[in-house]
Simulated assay, not measured.
Amino acid sequence: MGSVGYRVLAALLVAGCSLGLAACQEQQPPTDGRAVHFTAAGDMGMGAGARSVLEVVSGLRPDFNIALGDLSYKAGAEQDYCDVVTSKLGEDFAYELIAGNHESDGSEGDIDVFAGCLPNRLQGLQGTYGRQWYVDIPLDKPLVRMILVSPGLEFKDKDEFDYSRGSERYKWTEAAIDGAREANVPWTIVAMHVPCFSLGHYGCEAGQPLTNLLISKKVDLVLTAHEHAYQRSHQLGINGACPWIFSGSAVRSCIASTESQVTSGKGTIFAGVGTGGAGEHDLSGDDPEAPYFAAWSAANRNPALGTLDVHITEGRLDARFVPVSESGFMDHFSVVK
């Protein structure tokens, strides 16, 4: 099967699963007709890899895409990058941005310029697009609150985004999560460029206070990039035997579930999707945090560029990594109410 045919098959697997495969039988129709469909990946660039991933996104036909930072990797090329995106996805597609370290300080692009040529197209956005914002989707009777933050980054205006415990940005994030719960929004997803947990060479650049806040608040899914690889954790949870989760090690009691289908409210899944086109880093299965991870793809193991494809209904969240070719790595997981 050619790559185009494979992408069509992947789209069918996620969207309808009408082919009768066992993995698809986890998918359930929405209970009231509402559904949200989005894709997400970071670390893109403007080369053949990025263009291939954008073609996959185009074939999946999501409602919107979250670009998890590190866009053009080239100073002064903001419009060129925007042109690559719109040539594949269309001028009016909601290609939503959060900054990465390559464009936060303006060294290889300027997030504010990117935000000008790839503007927000989601209704009801609160905050500063490209830096720190959230939005409820759909605006009327929302299914999910998407919260996007920028820990570990410094912007060219010297605004260092501090998410230490008790800081204004920490409190903003906490209030955004609590507000979703108070409004009875079924799902909460947080996205940012830098991870805390990784099998690569990065440490907890997101910061342990923010990371533990997200876990303690039982955010359903956290999306990151920065490490050029795909790495999906088990569901991690804080409990009496695990009051705080530290990076750099793994404690079994901090793993709420190792199943591919988990229950919402028990903990948080972290999905690093730095597979948007710029190539992959090596990861290590001997990393001290390895017991926290359920699946991973890297330059030295099952390398694959691709996107995370996420479908949400009131009762479940289904996510699947869709690679650019039939020989690529695949992964899927679900969170149910």
Rank of each mutant, 00 (worst) to 15 (best):
L89E: 01
P119C: 09
S72I: 02
G106M: 01
S87T: 07
S87M: 00
L71F: 15
R51M: 00
I98H: 04
I98D: 08
E103R: 13
R51V: 04
S52I: 00
F64E: 07
R61F: 00
A40K: 09
A99K: 14
M44V: 02
C117H: 07
R51D: 09
H37V: 04
A50F: 05
G100M: 06
A115S: 15
A40D: 10
G90K: 09
H37Y: 11
E108F: 07
V85E: 05
V36R: 15
C82I: 04
D43V: 00
V56Q: 11
S87H: 00
V113I: 12
D70C: 06
G109M: 02
V36D: 06
Y73G: 07
D70P: 01
M44F: 06
S104L: 09
P62D: 13
A94L: 00
L54N: 10
I98G: 14
D43K: 01
F38N: 10
P119M: 08
G106F: 03
G69Y: 02
G76T: 09
G116M: 06
H102R: 10
V36C: 11
H37K: 11
A48K: 05
D83F: 02
G42Q: 07
V57H: 01
I66R: 15
L89D: 11
D70N: 15
M44A: 12
R121E: 02
S107Q: 03
D105Y: 04
F93I: 01
D112H: 13
S52M: 00
S107L: 00
A115G: 09
I98A: 11
Y95F: 15
